[in-house]
């Protein structure tokens, strides 16, 4: 009798377990494609207002993926992202450089599963290519859902949608043309759970969120410090500036899924950017503001 129960339990649970393995494999393929695929694409970004069209190229260099984006509408602009910084280039030759090292924390599907219910939703066709639909539905009301269309051949995301709790699509990105130039030997990412393994005593963050990097110096921003938090899907930057130093960080705004909030707590002003509802960003600032840098573990 117990054998029969075991068999029934296996029959009930097996499809769910198989599906979980399958979405994690697709997520891992996506991660690999973004780290090691050479490609050129035309991308349409619809985040409210006028749609943006960009020409995006990714090449795998000696220090990892490098991306160049050229705005095809609006004011002429070009961005280049490498392992050492992100540059904004104007047509008159002027350049702006935001130095910084890209996070090398790899994809941690276990952490994603804590905050999102993931499921594969069948096939579709994007930019003339077969795609697999992957949905990430938040387990908590304080963040957005994400739908992805992953290229069947490479795993590269061909389309993405950030969706609010009321079903409104806040931001849609769509590749309309893709040329793939093959995989290159991308550097392997650091263990996905390396950041999660750090101990951050005394911090109560929204469920699923972890501190990825803390108290980073910000070249070009006097006395500014940066914190990076993530739940595996949403990435949030918190900047802490001394109030006395003056502040031209601008007022709060939201465009598509990306929001910018400004708070003043104690002797600091906080600017926070992330793909989450403004209330969630505020909550994250309040949680991290309580941390004294002197108590942070070394890493």
């Amino acid at each position: 009798m117990s054998g029969l129960r075991l068999l029934l339990a296996w029959l009930v649970l097996w499809p769910a377990a198989a599906s979980a393995v399958e979405w994690k494999q697709w997520a891992a393929r996506m991660d690999a494609a973004q780290r090691s695929l050479n490609y050129d694409a035309t991308v349409l970004i619809d985040a409210g207002g006028d749609p943006e069209l960009i020409e995006l190229s990714q090449r795998i260099g000696p220090s990892g993926p490098e991306q160049q984006a050229i705005a095809l509408n609006g004011s002429p602009r070009r961005w280049v992202r490498t392992a050492s910084g992100l540059s904004l280039l104007a047509p008159d030759g002027q350049r702006s450089l935001a130095a910084g090292v890209a996070s090398e924390v790899g994809l941690d599907t276990g952490r994603v599963a804590e905050a999102y219910a993931a499921q594969l939703e069948g096939r579709d066709r994007i930019a003339g290519r077969e795609a697999v639909r992957l949905s990430l539905l938040p387990r908590f009301a304080d963040r957005y859902a994400l739908r992805l269309w992953l290229d069947l051949a490479t795993g590269l995301p061909l389309r993405s949608e950030r969706i609010a709790a009321d079903g409104q699509v806040l931001e849609r990105r769509l590749i309309t043309r893709l040329s793939v130039h093959g995989f290159a030997g991308g550097r392997p990412a650091a263990a996905g759970d390396a950041a999660a393994a750090r101990a951050w005593p005394g911090i109560t963050l929204p469920a699923g969120f972890r501190v990825v990097d803390a108290d980073l110096a910000v070249p070009g921003l006097a006395e500014g410090r940066q914190w990076i938090l993530s739940d595996g899907v949403v990435w949030v930057s918190i900047y802490r500036l001394p109030v006395a130093a003056g502040d031209d960080g601008g007022a709060a705004w939201r465009r598509g899924a990306l929001a910018h909030e400004v708070l003043q707590l104690g002797g600091h002003r906080f600017h926070v950017y992330g793909d989450a509802p403004p209330a969630t960003l505020t909550q994250l600032v309040e949680a991290t503001a309580a941390i004294e840098p002197a108590t942070l573990p070394a890493h």
Binding site: Q34, S103, V105, L148, R173
Partner: peptide, 10 residues
């Protein structure tokens, strides 16, 4: 630059 790329196109 610092935020992890991954979950959206581009």
């Amino acid at each position: 630059q610092l935020a992890q790329p991954g979950w959206i196109v581009g």
